[in-house]
């Protein structure tokens, strides 16, 4: 197992390198000029050229690429063109809101979706099954920002229970944190609840038709015992896969959710950096997201071995 993990980690290096080169070239080949944006509307050509020179954007492309690659190998992601802060410091500052939003969303989704999917499977064809499936279709179909606005209208504007926007850090106290994270994570969780509930229902249904489930019932086990001891562990592999996919999908989801709820996280930083053509920040964030994606896949692959003893690496 350890050699497998080591092998996978080594494989990460070329993947990250390809991502790095690709992102670097995409940004520079396109019609992007951070110097013009930095200079503002009234700047003349000389001022823009001076800024371009200061940023090193007038140097040959390959020279810029090698300087950057050399720097990131030493852990230096450079300085943001706009914020005049180290990119690593900017990212670290934005990590907590995004991590907490992702964590709360996944926890909320799993806690709600798995029981819903199981109940729907156990009561196949019943009203509750139809309701769960109807909710799933709605969850897939409605865009995140529409869900966000609807929840804000009800819980923040009409009922005045929760804040409209903003984020309180954990260090500011748990109640304030929970108040600020409740609506964003509910908004983002709905789509994952839909996805996960559907997948859980399908997996559990498939397992419930197996011979060993019938055998378990014939041994006199209660439906709950059958579910917990036999059905769920065997249905877990596809569910875990979907949870993993969900974590990867969250990267896209947080961009929209953080923008709607004005949360100063990595998603918001991504949007700001892209709009401002802040090359060093965009490059570092995409590398980070790619790394997270690769790591999530690795963790999911390892998790399979716990649920299915037949899987060995």
């Amino acid at each position: 197992m350890l050699s497998y993990i080591a092998r996978r980690l080594v494989q990460t290096v070329p993947v990250m390198l390809i991502v790095a080169v690709f992102v670097f070239l995409m940004l520079r080949i396109g019609p992007n000029d951070p110097a013009s944006i930095l200079a503002g509307d009234n700047a003349n050509a000389e001022q823009v050229a001076a800024i371009r020179q200061n940023l090193g954007l007038d140097r040959p492309l390959l020279s810029q690429l090698f300087v950057w690659l050399g720097a990131i190998l030493t852990g230096d992601f450079g300085e943001s063109f706009f914020f005049k802060k180290q990119v690593s410091a900017l990212i670290l500052d934005r990590l907590e809101p995004t991590f907490m939003l992702a964590l709360c969303t996944i926890v909320l989704a799993v806690v709600v979706a798995v029981p819903l999917g199981v109940i729907a499977a156990m009561r196949r064809g019943s009203l509750i099954d139809r309701l769960v499936m109807g909710f799933s279709v709605m969850g897939f179909s409605v865009p995140v920002f529409v869900i966000g606005y609807a929840l804000i209208y009800v819980f923040a504007i009409k009922l005045n229970w929760l804040p409209v926007q903003g984020y309180s850090r954990l260090a500011d106290g748990l109640p304030a944190f929970l108040r600020s994270i409740a609506l964003p994570s509910m908004t983002l969780a709905i789509i994952y609840v839909a996805l996960l509930a559907r997948m859980t229902r399908t997996s559990v249904l498939e397992v419930l038709g197996e011979d060993y489930i019938r055998t378990a019932y014939s041994r006199g086990l209660t439906p709950l015992q059958v579910l917990v001891r036999h059905a769920l562990p065997n249905a877990a592999v596809p569910i875990v896969t979907v949870i993993g996919l969900g974590v990867a999908l969250l990267i896209g989801g947080v961009v929209v959710t953080e923008s709607v709820f004005a949360i100063p996280g990595l998603g918001r930083l991504t949007v700001d950096a892209v709009l401002a053509r802040d090359f060093p920040t965009i490059q570092a964030i995409i590398l980070l997201f790619s790394f997270v994606y690769v790591m999530v896949n690795l963790v999911i692959d390892i998790a399979y071995t716990f649920f299915d003893p037949r899987i060995r690496y």
């Binding site: 804000i152 923040a156 504007i157 005045n160 926007q165 709820f261 004005a262 100063p264």
Partner: peptide, 18 residues
């Protein structure tokens, strides 16, 4: 100066007193 890029959200926050 709070950074709220979404106009609708800025007005929601104004309406709620935030």
């Amino acid at each position: 100066w709070r950074a709220i890029s979404d106009h609708q959200q800025a007005l929601n926050a104004l309406a709620s007193g935030e």
